[in-house]
Amino acid sequence: MKKRSSIILVLFFLFSLFVSLCAGRFPIGMGGIARLVLAGLGLEEVFGTPLHEMQLIFWNIRLPRIIMSFAVGCGISIAGAVFQALFRNPLAAPDILGVTAGSCFGAAAAIMFFSGMTVAVQCSSFVFGVIAVSLAYLLATRSWDTSAAVLVISGIVVSAFFQAGLSVLMYIANPYDQLAQIVFWIMGSFHASSWAKVQTTLPIVAAGSVLIGVFSWRLNMMTQHEEQVLSMGVDVFRWRLFYIGVSTLMVASSVASVGTIAWVGLIMPHIARYLVGPDHKRLIPTTAFLGGTFLMFMDTIARSILANEIPISIVTSIFGAPFLGYLVMKRREVGVNDELAH
């Protein structure tokens, strides 16, 4: 990575972290942050004891929310980079195999039939996300064609199936409470973040990120045509299953906790690729760091810019869609190196 890019990335992270810690309906200044951190370390005598409400908001609401947004951003961005490599398509996103559609269906079903119990929504969302990807994979393995294109088609079929199921649920949902809950959940939000959610999501995302990071160089090969990968001694089918499995777990656990997050998994790998090139050894950590920082910043905007919280997917779409447009225009200018055209 160019030194300047690294510095910009670190500065962006520090700025986002600072803004995220300070901004919100209960603004906390730099002094307040220092006081809270020192108090947390048992050094109250340095700056004095902070207000109880401030402590409550900082430790129980803001900090878990910042950690969740960073972890989910990391997980979804890494999954995006992995799926783009596996499907040899820079426009692939983590939900390409139906994980998001399955999770949404699972969450909507739990909202309707379990009165929206948080644990039920999370479990059901996670389980249906994994079921959706398993179905897509199973469907693809039944085909005589073993190419990645068949997997994509299977993903589209499964997504359509679960989206139809979701539509049925929304159609029969009580429009005064259940429907609003489903729609809000689908648009995603970190407002319900808690240490309990951090405890269920962070270990999966952290373990998945480490696993993908360790085997990141192999992803370079997965971008080549199947027969070429096989001829280089890599069991493409086994490795594809590994990468899809780990990425799906990361996405499903994220979506189960906070709902769907649009654009992050698609856009972040592009920016990271622009910064460090396509080699996944450098791309994966950069994407993770960038994705985490970006989502942390977007969540701060979502919760601070208006009096009411905006669903996170609206904010990420507002920033993501124009960025994709910019990428397309830029590629047109560059001409030959048109990676989006592949």
Binding site: R88, N220, T223, G277, P278, E339
Partner: peptide
């Protein structure tokens, strides 16, 4: 023939 979706060197 061969191509790649990403600009590997």
């Amino acid at each position: 023939s061969s191509d790649t979706a990403f600009p590997f060197s």
